[in-house]
Structure formats: C-alpha cells, structure tokens
Amino acid sequence: MIRIESLSKSFTLHNQGSAVIPVMAGASLTVAPGECVGLTGQSGAGKSTLMRMVYGNYLTAGGRLIVGDLDVATAEPRQIIALRRHTLGYVSQFLRVVPRVPTLDVVAEPLLALGTPAEDARDRAASLLRRLNIPERLWSLSPTTFSGGEQQRVNIARGFAHTYPALLLDEPTASLDAANREVVLTLIEEAKARGAAILGIFHDEGARARVCDRLVDVTGFTPRLAA
C-alpha cells in the first residue's frame, strides 16, 4: 500500500546564506495492507520528516513514494488532495482547526468532505468520541479550549472517522492515560484487521511492541556528512 524507494530530501535556507541541509538519503520501506510499521531513531533522525513527505506536506528531492497507485513525489496538488480525502489519513501530534467549530463537527469533517450525509457523519463522530471518553457535554464546544490529552483524543477520533486504507500516526498514545491508550491501541488493531496499512511513530515501547509488525530505523536514511 505504501512503497518508498531511495527517497531523498534536503532543505535550502535561502535567507541564511542559502545553506543546503541534506536530511534524508536512500530511504526505502514498504507497508502492506493490514500491516503496521513503526519508525524508530533518535530525535532529529528524520522520523517526522519522512511521515510529512509521505503525506505530501514536505516535497521530496528524489526517489519514489507510492501510496495506493499515486506517486506522491511527483503528484499534482489536486491528486494529493484527493489522496488525503479518500485514501491517506494522518493523526499528527497537534490539532489544527478553525476556532469555534464544535468538536462533533471537527471529528465529522473528514466524512462530510467525502459527501457522507451529515447525520451519518455525526453518528460516527459521536461513537468515536464516546469510545475515547470525551464527555458529551464537551461535544458542542470547540476543542481549542480542551486540555492536551483531550485534544489528542479529538485528533485521533478525527483520524479514524473515515476508514482510510492507509494511515500515518505520529505518537498517537503520547499524552493519554492507561484507559484511553487501550482504546487507541484497539482502534489501531481494528484498522489493521480491516486491512489498513499503517506507518507510525511510537515512543511508547509497549504500544510499539503490541501493534507494530516491523520496525524501521530511520538512522539508516540519514545522509553521511561529507568527509
């Protein structure tokens, strides 16, 4: 479902002496349907950068990056928009929403964007929020005022609202208590069972051991400094 071949990336800082910073070279990995692959490596090794490239958020300098049947490395913006809408979900560590929009609508939005009838979309959103223990009295409020853990759970509910065939998870259990961590791990297991290909970053070693089928150390993709 996800196939990455000799991917490379560098940043050029035009306003800082045009410094070119190579951050990735020769990155290759695959994620099959129903499989969860965990990225490991020290902070700054390029785990998030790789995830952002898969999502089309960062451009790639070279290589291939196939998600479904689209090469994200060379795709047109509108192809990536369609990919994100239908095929590729992303649970980032941060919730970025229009202030004032009720939590229920924030979670239902990916379904509404697909044309799901509003009632069905809200039902699905409500059941996810309930599973993730967000009290119903908060559903009509904007999540921008919620605690970090609550925002994280709203973000997860939103990421799992549509049954994406491929999913990127950036620290999905980071700021959660034991009960909610268990819910998230179960959601991940359910997604795998229905055939979703998952690429994730998990600092939580227990979570990693439980849901990941394989680990890929991104340190191997860090460009060697020129001698």
Binding site: H14, R52, G56, N57, L59, P77
Partner: peptide, 14 residues
C-alpha cells in the same frame, strides 16, 4: 505554488 500546507511548511522560494 502548490498544496497550501506544503508551501507554508516547506517553502522553496526565498
């Protein structure tokens, strides 16, 4: 020009 979040998060032009 490009995808909005890509242009804002990984801008290419000075």
């Amino acid at each position: 020009q490009g995808l909005t979040d890509q242009v804002l998060d990984d801008p290419q032009h000075a």
